[in-house]
């Protein structure tokens, strides 16, 4: 029996389309609510190569909407990228999966997008989306924006050189905290599934070369008020990114310590290329407090906070939203 029989029967895909999907390469940035639905749709549809990027690990309050994960992943303290890859490998062994447990930012984004056909946005902040937008426009890679909060969400496909980019839509990066997030306003899991499905469908159309079938603008949906809309978004003549081709978000230095909105946690990043030996860190920290480690990360409870340390010397410090305190804990236990 052909795994894709029902999909191939769908005329716009057909056998030729299925071959195109099998030859396609896609990067998914962020494997939370949107990202786990996106990766699931693409893997099940037979997209040949998926690069799965995420900086975070699975927690219990993810499970109501992040459909690739389960309680075993929470107990194991797995990074989302690794847990997603494990689940997808069991779902479709024909798909090549590349796991990237990393914070996507100016230092690594170009390497993550330049060798793929399309990039899918499963991120949870505007800053990373502007970094993605710069990298994708610079390298001519299509990407599909998606965002969701409450029962409301939106999606827009960016085709560099052909249509508007994210900078045309917004003009600039909104200030942190200026718009509601899933952590402040909650989110309906069905809305997440709808928005990610809009994004994934746009992705199929791009990968199949069916630009004529794209939504052609910003799709908005509110499942609670039953409002669906597509608004045309023209290119902005003033756009720095796709107009002037100035990629200032790629030039920005990755911030050393960033508060993770609504999570009472701060991410501390190390310089590009930094690495840390987790086994050695475990030996060093074990006398100071409870420590546990898996193949991907180490968790230690120190000074009333939980420090999660990754091999790239990045850390997420839970129990504070004060970057200065997080930096202090990092310097004390990991190194300055």
């Amino acid at each position: 029996m052909d795994r894709y029989a029902k999909q191939v029967l769908f005329a716009p895909i057909g056998k030729e389309g299925q071959k195109r999907l099998a030859a396609a390469r896609v990067t998914v940035v962020g494997l939370g609510a949107l990202g786990s639905v996106l990766a699931s749709h693409l893997a099940r549809a037979g997209v040949g190569f998926l690069r799965l990027c995420d900086r975070d690990f699975v927690e219990l309050d993810n499970l109501h909407r992040q459909v690739l994960f389960d309680e075993d992943d929470v107990r194991s303290g797995l990074p989302k990228a690794a847990a997603a890859a494990a689940k997808l490998a069991r779902t479709n062994s024909e798909v090549r999966l590349e796991t990237r447990v990393c914070d996507v930012g100016p230092a690594n984004v170009e390497d993550l997008v330049r060798d793929v056909d399309l990039v899918l946005d499963g991120t949870d902040n505007f800053e990373t989306r502007f970094v993605l937008n710069d990298a994708c426009v610079k390298h001519g890679r299509p990407w599909v924006y998606g965002g969701c909060v409450g029962s409301y969400g939106m999606a827009m496909t960016v085709l560099p050189g052909e249509g508007p980019c994210f900078g045309c839509l917004l003009g600039g990066v909104p200030s942190p905290g200026s718009s509601p997030t899933c952590d402040t306003a909650g989110v309906l899991n069905t809305a997440v599934a709808v928005v990610a499905s809009l994004q994934a469908t746009e992705a199929f159309k791009v990968l199949l070369g069916r630009h004529d079938a794209l939504a052609g603008g910003l799709q908005t949906v509110d499942l609670w008020t039953n409002a669906f809309q597509i608004v045309k978004v023209p290119r902005s003549p003033q756009c720095d990114t796709c107009g002037a081709r100035r990629f200032r978000h790629l030039e920005a230095a990755s911030t050393g310590a960033v508060t993770l909105c609504g999570r009472n946690a701060v991410q501390v990043t190390a310089p590009p290329g930094a690495t840390i030996d987790l086994a050695e860190a475990e030996r060093r920290l074990a006398p100071l407090g409870p420590v546990r480690r898996n193949a991907f990360l180490l968790k230690a409870t120190l000074d009333g906070c939980e420090l999660t340390l990754f091999p790239d010397a990045r850390a997420i410090i839970q129990g504070t939203d004060d970057p200065a305190r997080a930096r202090s804990i990092y310097a004390k236990y990991v190194g300055a």
Partner: peptide, 10 residues
Amino acid sequence: ITFAQAISGG
């Protein structure tokens, strides 16, 4: 005339 809000959540 329609207002929308760009959404960061995901």
